[in-house]
């Protein structure tokens, strides 16, 4: 039973964060049969400007649709990490693109996990634009807040035409990378 679980996907315009938020929320709301609301914030400038997508998940009614204190932050840019890492609950999680975001000087209360989402997207999926979908796959594996199979269903239904296979591969790549990261974590613990 989830009362309220809040996810913030943050980065820059052009990284596919709005679409990822839609896919994640749709997967939860329609295929996991929970309630989910997705909101977004963007500036009129489009590419390169700060962009974010927020998802609230609950088994009950969701009145307020925006993030109050995030349970999970996915940060795909240094600015996103700097601006939002303090707004994550201490028992929450932060996933960062480890090659784009430097952790120097910022010590959030929440646990920080780094994976090279953009490099994985470029090298294993063939398109760096798929970085945010790679991150979704990792998020599903690490938080279990959404079933990977539900994300796949959402991709099949709603990813832009012609990008379904690419996005499905991206989900898989992200989930595998997260599994490896978790295994390394267990081994070193």
């Amino acid at each position: 039973m989830i009362e309220r679980y809040e996810i913030r996907l943050a980065g820059e315009g052009g990284q596919g964060l709005i679409l990822s938020g839609l896919l994640l929320a749709a997967a939860v709301a329609v295929f996991d049969e929970r309630n989910a609301v997705q909101t977004q914030s963007y500036t009129p400038l489009v590419r390169g400007a700060p962009s974010r997508s927020e998802i609230v998940i609950s088994d009950g009614v969701i009145d307020f649709p925006e993030v109050i204190a995030a349970d999970c932050l996915v940060a795909l840019s240094p600015g996103a990490f700097r601006d939002f890492s303090d707004a994550v609950k201490s028992e929450g999680r932060i996933l960062v693109d480890s090659e784009l975001v430097s952790l120097d000087g910022v010590q959030p209360r929440a646990q920080v996990l780094g994976l090279p989402f953009t490099r994985l997207a470029r090298e294993k999926v063939g398109k760096s634009l798929a970085a945010s979908t790679v991150a979704l796959g990792a998020l599903a594996e690490l938080t279990h807040i959404v079933r990977l199979s539900s994300l796949e269903e959402a991709v099949r239904m709603r990813a832009p035409q012609g990008t379904e296979e690419l996005n499905l591969r991206a989900l898989k790549v992200g989930a595998e990378a997260a599994r490896e990261l978790a295994a390394v974590g267990r081994a070193s613990a």
Binding site: L22, V37, Q38, E66
Partner: peptide, 9 residues
């Protein structure tokens, strides 16, 4: 604006 851009079931 929030209702216009917010997504829900």
């Amino acid at each position: 604006e929030v209702i216009g851009h917010m997504r829900e079931k």
